[in-house]
Amino acid sequence: MIYKLRFDRSRFLSFDISPDVLEESFGTDYFSLLEQAQWETFWQPLPVEFFDDSDKHNVTKPPDVTLWFTDQLVVNQRAYEALKDTLSPYGEWLPLQCEGVPYWLLHITRSTGMDAVDSSSVRTVEESGYIDVKKLQFNPAAVKDLLLFKSEFDDGKNIFCSDEYRKLIEAHTLQGLVFSEDLASIF
């Protein structure tokens, strides 16, 4: 089983790095830096924040594991210690700070090509470059050995994971993620 990762905003605080912090740290053209394949060369520990993005505005607990946007993994120190060795082949670990507390961003660098996508998958690519995924299914043989990955099919806009990754998160009782079976949904 392959899942699309989502953050659980109904039960845990949402993660953010302020655009002001990004601009102050990396310059006004920080978007182009964040499009690079590797971030280690320019990254520095950034101050980050958590906020209540729930519908009821009653969430107070930060997650152990969450996402920055939909394509980067963020973990607290406990999760980092549990996952760092296992997940290192899937990206680069980069330091963060939230009010003096260490957090870590896993910039996912493992990606699959179009050959990893089943022929039943459907997407629309608009002139602007926006990709609207209508249906997505992976070829099991192409992703069988991957815990985490991005896909060329959706231009790397999401993190996908295996059931083994879900079990790893559960085995360490790490909270904050939703494992969606609907790979094409924007939510």
Rank of each mutant, 00 (worst) to 15 (best):
K4Y: 00
F7W: 12
R9E: 08
S10P: 01
F12K: 04
L13F: 08
S14V: 00
D16F: 00
D20R: 13
L22K: 15
G27E: 07
D29I: 00
F31H: 14
L34T: 09
Q36I: 00
Q36L: 09
A37F: 11
E40G: 04
E40A: 12
T41E: 14
F42L: 05
W43R: 09
P45T: 13
L46M: 07
L46E: 08
V48A: 15
F50S: 06
D53W: 11
D53K: 14
H57E: 13
T60E: 13
T60R: 13
P62R: 15
P63Q: 10
D64K: 08
D64T: 06
T66H: 07
T66E: 07
T70W: 12
L73Y: 09
V74T: 08
V75Y: 03
Q77K: 14
Q77I: 04
Q77W: 06
D85N: 14
T86I: 12
T86V: 14
T86E: 14
L87D: 12
S88Q: 15
Y90W: 11
Y90I: 03
L94M: 03
P95C: 04
Q97C: 12
V101P: 06
P102N: 09
P102F: 03
Y103L: 13
L105S: 06
L105T: 03
I108R: 09
T112Q: 10
G113M: 09
D118W: 04
S119E: 14
S119Y: 07
S120T: 15
E127L: 09
Y130R: 13
I131A: 11
D132E: 13
V133C: 06
K134L: 04
Q137L: 11
F138Y: 08
N139R: 14
A141F: 02
A142G: 01
K144S: 11
K144N: 11
D145Q: 11
L147I: 07
F149I: 05
E152N: 02
F153Y: 14
F153C: 05
D154P: 09
D155T: 04
G156T: 02
G156Q: 06
N158C: 08
I159Q: 03
F160P: 01
D163H: 07
Y165P: 05
K167F: 01
L174M: 11
L174C: 09
L174A: 08
F179W: 02
L183N: 04
A184R: 07
I186Y: 10
